[in-house]
Amino acid sequence: MNTVIFRTIAPTLAAIMLVFSIFVLLRGHNEPGGGFIGGLIAASAVAIYGIGASVTEVRRAIRLDPLSIAGVGVVLAGASGLVSAFFDVPFMTSQWLAFEFADSEVVLSTPMIFDIGVYLVVFGTISAVALALEEPEQ
């Protein structure tokens, strides 16, 4: 696995995959994609970088503890459901906010926040597992 070619290409590949994962995440609302698959792609990027470089380097690069990222995701997802409390509708009812920005219509919604939460949960847990398995044994 640890060839020169792989080690050279891994950082670039990981970067491309991370960007692509965000594209998939945002595309997901009305087209195939979404937080789950986006999170999986991002976690694979982390796993590839972990094989190519080293686990310590990956941990330094993402700075936060992966499980903390997953925690942020759960909080985001839960909070997105609580937003509907202010509109006299049941839990998790989607709320929309559309506005004009730079000649195009931007639509923000609570399902998007929920999806970002899912992205973070999947990214956090899967990369925590992947990094734990990649870590050399003591």
């Binding site: 503890d65 499980l67 903390s68 997953a70 925690g71 942020v72 995701g73 759960v74 909080v75 839960g78 909070a79 459901g81 609580l82 839990f91």
Partner: peptide, 15 residues
Amino acid sequence: VLCLIGGALLLIMRK
């Protein structure tokens, strides 16, 4: 919801 969000916050600050 309280348990889930509380659990998630604790996961963030578990260190």
